[in-house]
């Protein structure tokens, strides 16, 4: 032992806390069986049936292969994929920027005020997407409230084209998806031990430094989870782009919907769906590698 040390015990003798957790047993996995079975029967099996049945319909494997190649190299599909990814990314980023302070305000609110805030965030969430989207159309239309107010104030001479634009799609989607982000980040913020912030303060850290070095990093798992949820939900949108977008606002979801509903071409719909699924899984995998979700989850556990 070092001579400068005043400590008499050897810390290595103690077991690290993390290793004291009970190892998982077969019984633990058995508990998951009913849930997994339900998932398999209710969600996965019909999906596989749909994909298999409709793709097999195309013809021989060579036909299918040719069809797949044609589809994934189709400029329309690639265009929609790009538009979907870009829009989803922008929507996710805007959601983070808006949701972060909202979630923080929520952690500070108490009693009646908290109920009001959480209500304001959740109630629109219970309203159907179509109703919420129509509400925005009333606001943004050429004869809508915003244009009317601007005209009355003399700020503009002719109504602005607010609806049926990229911006309108992003606005509408952000509005629908914001609650997911707020609630996910709120949960992460709520889990932060307030004494960590006091500790930082006691060590002389000013507010901004505590936020940057302690608060923000600890909320990152929540921000990442929220982003993944919002991004994945975004990529599946088709009602909002159809109602609020212009002629160029075509997402992958719109293509699939039109193949399923209008052209009844389910083979093509399936190929596009698988294309989108692979795209999202690839994205999720990348995220997993970068952020190492497992480690973050472990960290949450050990507290």
């Amino acid at each position: 032992m070092s001579t400068t040390s005043v400590l008499v015990t050897d810390p290595a003798r103690e077991l690290p806390l993390a290793k004291r957790r009970r190892p998982r047993t077969a019984g633990d996995w058995l508990l998951a069986v009913p849930g997994l079975a339900l998932l398999l029967i209710a969600m996965i099996a019909p999906l596989i049936w749909f994909l298999w049945d409709s793709i097999a319909d195309i013809g021989t494997s060579a036909d299918i292969f040719a069809n797949v190649i044609e589809t994934v190299s189709d400029i329309i599909i690639l265009d929609a994929a790009y538009y979907t990814a870009a829009t989803s990314l922008v929507v996710t980023l805007i959601c983070v920027v808006l949701a972060y302070p909202m979630a923080a305000a929520l952690t500070l609110a108490r009693g009646m005020f908290f109920n009001l805030l959480i209500g304001a965030i959740i109630v629109p969430y219970f309203t159907s997407t179509i109703v919420r989207t129509y509400a925005w159309m009333v606001l943004l239309g050429r004869g809508g409230i915003i244009n009317q107010a601007m005209l009355d104030l003399g700020a503009i001479d002719a109504p602005m084209q607010l609806l049926y634009t990229h911006g309108a799609v992003i606005l509408g989607m952000t509005y629908v998806l914001l609650p997911y982000m707020v609630l996910t980040i709120f949960t992460a913020m709520k889990a932060i031990d307030p004494r960590l912030l006091q500790a930082a303060q006691s060590m002389g850290s000013p507010g901004w430094y505590t936020f940057l070095r302690v608060y923000a990093p600890l909320t990152m798992p929540g921000v990442m989870s929220g982003s993944i949820i919002v991004f994945i939900l975004s990529t599946g949108f088709f009602v909002t782009p159809a109602l609020m977008g212009g002629k160029d606002d075509v997402m992958i979801g719109n293509l699939i919907q039109s193949e399923v509903e209008i052209n009844l071409n389910w083979g093509l719909a399936s190929i596009i769906s698988i294309f989108a699924l692979v795209f999202i899984l690839a994205l999720y995998w990348t995220y997993y590698r970068i952020a190492n979700i497992g480690a973050l989850i472990d960290q949450e556990d050990s507290r």
Partner: peptide, 16 residues
């Protein structure tokens, strides 16, 4: 943060 006091908390409050 301006008091220059050291502080040790009950649950350690170490940054995880």
């Amino acid at each position: 943060q301006k008091r220059q006091l050291g502080m040790v908390f009950q649950n350690y409050a170490i940054f995880p």
